[in-house]
Design a protein around this nucleic acid. Sequence first.
DNA 1: ATGCCCCCGTCCCGGGGA
Length: 256
Amino acid sequence: MRIASWNVNSAKARLDHITGWLKADNADILMMQEIKSQDENFPHDAFTDLGWHIAVHGQKSYNGVAIASRFPIDDVMNGLPGDDADEQARYIEATINGVRIGNIYLPNGNPAPGPKFDYKLSWMARLYDRAVELLATEMPVVLGGDYNVLPQDVDCYDPAAWVGDALTHDDSRAAFFKILHAGYMDALRALHPSGVHYTYWDYQAGAWQRDNGLRIDHLLLSPEAGDRLTDVGIDRAPRGLEKPSDHTPIWCQLRD
DNA sequence: ATGCCCCCGTCCCGGGGA
């Protein structure tokens, strides 16, 4: 089973790219972030017409996450537990084919310090708590999405230029590695311990043409999922299309 | 040092993105 994550930067603006990518048999499950759509305006039919299932947790204009799947989607949970006052649509979780899928759109957090950075760190603390709860279920768990964290300097085209940014901040990195230390595996680094593997290139300043990228989209696997990991990759092709998202898909293959 | 670009919305600017 192939599980992918893609920050699409608007489901409606990117609909042809998304359906084209699914039709090319690139994945069985796709986690999408930044759908920028309310549930009622989401293009559900574009997925169901292909025979796919779809679960959506959206809001107006900003944020929003969705899961598309070839298999039925069960036990859907909208929102990350831990703060009933949080109205930003950044998390959806569901069970698909026996795997618990957590789809994450983690706050950017800039500028740091400030209230937006505080929100990022509090969100990451809630994510840690949920991640630990999920480990206790002993299900295979995949926590995938746009983490807005550059784990190491090698994951940034110019680390010196990003010092002090919320994506490279020591507190952001510490919160990310705290989840790994609890028992999750960074799928990309599990199979490619070193080397440059970007998932995002800014629209500005010719970042794509210069390969000035970042690795901020991650697939974190519980031990039960990690034991089944056979392959992982980043598909750069969608970033090269006309009117692309600024992110491109990352995927992992789990043996059946 | 700053902006470049892109998306959204009771919309032609401003907020947000990273």
